[in-house]
């Protein structure tokens, strides 16, 4: 099966460790993620000002690229890109007035009416491949690994684009269990990681991160898994700052779900680019013997 794929800028650089294992894992499951030609930055956040259509141009152009490919479905791995693209898509589908204005402005492009379905990679795993099939393909079960799934904001909010009902969320749980690991659900799973505030107000950002880490640790997690490069940056790379500020906190390795999936599928550490993760991930994986098992 071939499917159009939107990686996003960060996945092509800082978060190659999300992109590469994702593409490899899907390949192992018989799906070819075909990167869109000529995609551009989606804008990372959806425009909330009602009179601002300019910031919708970027995501809509990306959706037009999908139509140009003769496709009608787009798989997105990055949570922020997913949120932005899905919301822009919804607006183009539902708001005829704004749709018209945007289409008229982008005269050099074909008209777009929301024909594409924007799907997050997690949903795609469940709906198009299925947990059963994935389970059959697992070569290195992540047995004994206690993982806290961290959704963050953009996968579940607002409701109009939530990949599943926030109160009955099971996607991460099912994936983790399929891979043979243990789920540690924790209250801060859907809290905000402080997002871009890490740049504007770094101190507030670190405080927010500390709380999430503390919550996960207190529920017994050995690792956090996420699907957003900004969450990974805040919780992972900036974790050192949180540890320095709070003695109680312990190091908590942070992964992308695609890395764990690739590992469990037996694709080995090579495709996972662990060197781009920021804290003890390799150590943890080695101690659990997941790296040698493949």
């Amino acid at each position: 099966m071939k499917i159009s794929y939107y990686p996003g800028c960060t996945l092509k650089t800082k978060a190659k460790n999300m992109d590469c294992p994702g593409v490899a894992a899907l390949n192992a499951l018989g799906v070819e993620l075909v990167e869109l030609p000529r995609w551009n930055c989606c804008g990372a956040v959806f425009s909330l000002a009602d009179d601002d259509l300019l910031h919708l141009l970027a995501p809509v152009r990306d959706l037009i690229r999908v139509v140009e490919q003769g496709d009608n479905k787009l798989v997105v791995a990055c949570s922020m890109c997913y949120n932005t693209l899905a919301r822009a898509n919804l607006l183009m589908r539902e708001n005829s007035e704004k749709r018209h204005t945007i289409n008229t402005f982008m005269e050099e492009e074909r008209d777009y009416n929301g024909e594409v379905e924007v799907v997050h990679l997690l949903s795609f795993l469940r709906d198009e491949i299925g947990w059963e099939k994935i389970k059959e393909s697992i070569k290195v079960p992540l047995r004994g690994l206690k993982i806290a799934p961290y959704y963050g904001c953009t996968l579940l909010r607002p409701q109009s684009v939530a990949i599943e009902p926030p109160e009955k969320r099971t996607l991460f749980k099912d994936l983790i269990e399929t891979m043979g690991a243990t789920v540690v659900d924790f209250p801060a799973s859907t809290d905000c990681c402080s997002s871009y505030q890490i740049l504007s107000n770094p101190d507030i950002g670190i405080e927010t991160v500390s709380k999430i880490l503390e919550s996960a640790e207190s529920w017994g997690a050995e690792a956090i898994v996420t699907s957003c490069p900004l969450c990974e940056y805040n919780l992972g790379k900036r974790q050192e700052d949180a540890l320095r500020k709070h003695d109680k906190l312990k190091e908590l390795p942070t992964f992308y779900f695609t890395q764990l999936l690739a590992l469990a599928l037996g694709l080995g550490a090579e495709v996972c680019n662990f060197e781009l993760n920021h804290n003890g991930v390799v150590r943890l994986m080695e101690s659990k013997k997941f790296l040698t098992a493949a």
Partner: peptide, 21 residues
């Protein structure tokens, strides 16, 4: 924004921060 901070940031952090602030 200092060069050190810039260096480590994922693009989405920059893009979203610039968009919001």
């Amino acid at each position: 924004i200092s060069e050190e901070i810039m260096a480590g940031l994922p693009q989405i952090a920059l893009v979203s921060c610039f968009r919001k602030h």
